[in-house]
């Protein structure tokens, strides 16, 4: 299977946390959530290529089949559903939100910091798990496409309602103004970069077809 589904990439990272700093990590994650909820313009939203992401703590006792004492660290589990390549994603993270990332990840064992980017990438690569199955409900669209489409839908309904009684010439003028207003929301969606044929073939082989 693949980390890709349509235009989205699934990253899954588990990094060890010192047990005695885990509570602090949880408080920071809570503060990060509050800060993001209070702002419609957070740094993560500014990146505009993350559909959904989550940082959460897996405690030693959450590995429910292990004997007590078997797992020595707590773990920071990070998920993200983003668009673009792995390199673009990590580069953008490192460039745009380095202090936020450092605050969240600095409690992970041997975390090198998010800048410079090469040791940061090495650390993520070391702790990343590939995806065995990944599902995307709207594989043809990137995050920006979804937000633009939602905006366009809203604007289109308003335009249709407000323009229905206009004379044809006034309608044409309003239509042109409307197009100028929504021009940044008229992007093409479609198949992503995944090699669908190759995956189909592999899938057929597994099924013995």
């Amino acid at each position: 299977m693949s980390n890709l589904a349509g235009k989205a990439y699934a990253i899954t990272v588990l990094s060890p946390l010192k047990p005695w700093t885990t509570w602090l990590n949880q408080v920071i994650l809570l503060r990060a959530r509050q800060a993001a909820a209070a702002s419609n313009d957070s740094s993560l939203k500014k990146l505009t290529f993350i559909h959904y992401a989550r940082w959460q703590v897996v405690r030693r006792q959450d590995w429910l089949a292990e004997e007590p004492g078997q797992v020595k660290y707590n773990y920071l589990l990070f998920f993200s559903n983003f668009n673009g390549t792995w390199d673009q994603y990590i580069d953008a993270f490192s460039d745009v939100v380095p202090s936020g990332l450092n605050l969240i990840w600095r409690w992970s064992v041997k975390f090198p910091g998010s800048v410079p980017v090469t040791p940061f990438k090495q650390y993520i690569r070391l702790n990343q798990f590939d995806t065995d199955y990944y599902y995307n409900a709207y594989p043809g669209a990137a995050t920006t496409d979804v937000k633009a489409a939602l905006y366009l839908k809203d604007q289109m309904a308003k335009f249709a309602e407000n323009s229905k009684d206009l004379e044809p010439a006034a309608f044409k003028e309003a239509y042109n103004k409307f197009l100028i207003n929504v021009q940044n929301s008229l992007m093409s969606t479609g198949t992503g970069p995944r090699f669908t044929e190759r995956h189909n073939d592999a899938s057929r082989e597994l099924k013995g077809v």
Partner: peptide, 9 residues
């Protein structure tokens, strides 16, 4: 559970 769940929309 727990942690920081980010959603763009």
């Amino acid at each position: 559970g727990g942690g920081f769940f980010f959603a763009d929309y």
